[in-house]
Amino acid sequence: MVSIKLNNVSLVYKLHEKLTLSAPDRRVAGPGGRIEGSGRKQFVQALDGVSFDLKAGDRLGLVGPNGAGKTTLLKVLYGIYEPTDGSVDIEGKVDALFNINIGFRREATGRRNIVLRGLISGWTEAEIEEKMEDIIAFSELGDFIDLPFKAYSQGMAARLAFSAATALDPEILLMDEWIGAGDASFQEKAKRRMDELAEKAGIIVLASHSEALIQSVCTKKLTLRSGRIESFTTEPVKRVGAVAKSS
């Protein structure tokens, strides 16, 4: 059964300062978690006691200001960051779309990039071969698929990335602000595919600053602020109507 269960997850990491000629008190901290400690022993509390459960069919929207911990949380779910405290239990095959350029090589053609992206995601060559035409068709790149990736616009790159990431029907799909680059018709098409994915009892977690996107795609909304959960609302959107505050 596909599920995500986070129990009191915290992530603290040490700030590795670069040598600088600026006086320490004149350096301004950027957005992102809470900085604790001083001098050379500074730590960032990127996530603090985050707990929630998701089950098959859930579509979670992650919202919050810059540096609230949205991308960090996605990376914890994907397994890139190991939490310093708490537990993460995930059942299901996970794929992620964080950066549309990941795994894509500028000089290689779109077709070759599909192969590379598939290998990086752990697909077999047979699976890549089987899905190749579907991915190309969904991306609507036409003859561009045999041109080098560097000839693609950001929107075309997003089409290819999304088509490849969703081609093997991941049970859990994690996405970070991917959709901004696609045009309106592709966004609509992508949304339909996400609907299909969720209806096949999958889970989608989408981080975005676009309230409209969250409302149209997600069934749950988790608001983060400074690494902590500010609110976790279920069934918030047009789909069902009533917004219930669960925690």
Partner: peptide, 9 residues
Amino acid sequence: ESFIEGTTL
């Protein structure tokens, strides 16, 4: 960097 921060390889 981009691979390490974006994949679980």
